[in-house]
């Protein structure tokens, strides 16, 4: 079921799985008495620039090492992955955070909504194509642009609205900034 080689570096063992097998793998790790990975140490979303990943870190009293489970190669346009809240309901907020920051949809999470950003926010700030507008950005030459797009949730809007005060351009509903590669990630209004 593993999608790649098992590697070990420092004190961490690393395995890779695909989203289809994530539920089975995690259940086995959690339930099998010789593994006993009962503690979910961390759940992190990762945007590699090309694909999305979700990285889990588990701890078991059977081994001194951390176990890193990388569930990878999610599509940037529609990242979907099964939730692990059936094993650890504490993962609920971690998955909400990953959804909020990366747009990764965890199927089976009962309360998957934004947790940090406001409900009318539409971008996913930790994606690599979300560039900061200030001079600490990776590409200061691009100047100041408005990547943050705040508008009501799509289903509540009948027409595009302009958010007052930010000077953001009008955007069409559902037009999330999900371009694939970094150079093209300037945003819809810049490419227009």
């Amino acid at each position: 079921m593993l999608a790649g080689p098992v590697t070990a570096r420092h004190d961490t063992t690393e395995i890779r799985v695909t989203p289809e097998h994530l539920t089975d793998v995690m259940t086995a790790l959690h339930d099998q008495p010789e593994l006993r990975f009962l503690i979910l140490s961390d759940l992190a979303g990762v945007d590699t620039g090309t694909v999305m990943q979700v990285v889990y870190h588990l701890w078991s009293d059977a081994t001194p090492d951390w176990l890193r489970v990388i569930c990878g190669d999610l599509l940037r346009d529609d990242p979907r992955i099964p939730s692990v809240t059936f094993l650890w309901n504490g993962a609920e907020w971690a998955e909400r955070e990953a959804y909020d920051m990366f747009g990764i949809i965890f199927e089976g999470n009962r309360d998957l909504r934004r947790i940090y950003m406001s409900p009318d926010y539409q971008s996913f700030p930790l994606r690599k194509d979300f560039l900061l507008p200030d001079d600490s950005s990776r590409s200061p030459g691009m100047g100041i642009r408005h990547m943050e797009q705040a508008a009501p949730p799509a289903e509540t809007r009948s027409a595009p609205t302009l958010r007052r005060g930010t000077g953001a351009a009008t955007i069409a509903p559902g037009d999330a900034p999900t371009t694939a590669t970094l150079p093209a990630a300037i945003g819809p209004e810049a490419s227009a």
Partner: peptide, 15 residues
């Protein structure tokens, strides 16, 4: 701002 009163507005809307 659109004048449509039925529109649900942004939470940040000063109005």
């Amino acid at each position: 701002m659109t004048a449509d009163p039925t529109l649900v507005r942004s939470l940040d809307d000063p109005d």
